[in-house]
């Protein structure tokens, strides 16, 4: 059962549920207000393309918006929350088009037999594969996971931060499983 697609679905749906319930609690009635504020505040300094190519959890978008407000985006507290909600809804996990990696770099762990595109990635079978697929692919394709070998501490930092950005709590066991899967297959 653990490697089956049914399991994968369960993980993904559970994650989504946690995410959505966390995020929607603060959504205001006027959904257009968020969009209008986003368009007014962000374009003061830069274009919107870089935002629209990004997927993030609500806490992740909060980081971004906080950084932008500190650097001059004119939003008050309430408005800031509306923009975070808007970004989360439009560019949250499982938004229509997750971030794509394209062709993997020549020295990525899976490129041994020639260059491959991130769409054709098959993860090595091992304990933790389903967790990786379930969680990571909510925001980006697997290319980002397998493109680069990383050290132990770095993988742990990544996984914890991705979960934090999506306000997800998982058991220590699950966290360790994910980290050791990444270490084993894509470690340094």
């Amino acid at each position: 059962m653990k490697n089956s697609s049914a399991y994968k679905l369960v993980v993904r749906t559970t994650c989504l549920f946690i995410l959505l319930s966390a995020g929607f609690s603060s959504v205001r009635a006027d959904e257009n207000a968020g969009r209008r504020l986003y368009e007014a505040a962000c374009v003061q300094c830069h274009g919107l393309a870089q935002i629209e190519q990004t997927r993030n959890g609500r806490a992740g978008w909060e980081d971004t918006v906080h950084k932008m407000v500190i650097t001059g985006a004119q939003l008050d507290i309430e408005e800031m929350e509306l923009v975070i909600d808007y970004l989360y809804q439009q560019h949250g996990p499982d938004a229509s088009d997750p971030m794509r990696t394209g062709v993997l770099p020549f020295d990525s762990p899976l490129s041994k037999d020639g260059l491959i595109s991130s769409e054709n990635i098959v993860l090595p079978d091992a304990k933790g594969k389903n967790l990786i697929e379930g969680y990571c692919m909510m925001c980006h394709d697997l290319g980002r996971v397998v493109a680069t070998r990383r050290g132990d501490k770095e993988w742990r930092g990544y996984v914890k931060d991705m979960l934090r950005r999506n306000s997800m709590n998982i058991s220590d066991d699950q966290l360790n499983t994910m980290v050791s899967y990444l270490k084993q297959n894509f470690g340094k």
């Binding site: 830069h46 980002r144 680069t148």
Partner: peptide
């Protein structure tokens, strides 16, 4: 990274 080029795509 804000250019969303290969460094961004590959996380490098």
């Amino acid at each position: 990274m804000s250019r969303r080029g290969r460094s961004y795509e590959t996380g490098r």
